[in-house]
Amino acid sequence: MKPAAFDYFRPASLSDALALLAKYKDDCKILAGGQSLVPAMNFRLARPAILIDINDIAELDYVHADDRGLHIGALTRHAAFHRRVVDGPLGALFSAVARHIAHYPIRQRGTFAGSLAHADPASEWCLLATTLDATVVAKSARGERAIAIGDFFNGTFSTDLEPDELLAEVHLPPMGQGWRTGFYEFSRRAGDFALGMALAALRIEAGVVREARLGVGGVSDRAIRLRKLEERLVGGAASQEMIDTIAREAWASVSPIGDIHATPEYRRDLVATAVKRALTEAAA
């Protein structure tokens, strides 16, 4: 339960951090909140030769909204979302989802961007980012690039980030007042990772769904956007009948993984339930 030996850097600026990344590349890990990395190091499941602690880099600690949407810096803690960071449905959704993430002390340390970089398939933030078309801003000494969330996750604990890149910011498009959202998660205990969860966002005008976003998480090696079902939703009413249909098709469309916590059959059942409950909340 003691980590293997490592070197430790605590740069005070982003450029210093990027220089270290450029120098050490695969040998290093970024330490932000450390809520996943540090236990993994203590178990010696992760053995980075070098830790780059970014907690002193004040320029990464921000969350702000503008007409392009929400911008979340790499050091924004989960707890920052307890209160609404932006007016309207997006801020409310973030606030609701944040309360499902682990426990209060963990939320004070762990970061939004760190969750994405860690890429746990049962992470609430990975589901939210996937479902709501987030963009990841990766920075390196070579420059900066924007990665669409659909291209970001490569699988469990695996992303498109290059060894010299830092996940500097996550950007979410704005969500106008016409949107309604729903989130449902099932976990064994309060604060556990989800065994199944769904996030739905609907823009309803005069009883007709005009736009829809629907995703499920905790099911396979990454969060899944259910685009075909989104298309089914658009143009009709978000009726109970429609919700049941979507839940049934979600159930049929996923190929869940099995592990000691849940069999594929059980996860599939949870997908249908989560989709139904998330959509019901969004349509209410």
Binding site: A247, W251, D269, K276
Partner: peptide, 9 residues
């Protein structure tokens, strides 16, 4: 599930 209680109906 064995008793026929589906979640997707």
């Amino acid at each position: 599930r064995r008793a026929g209680v589906a979640t997707h109906g």
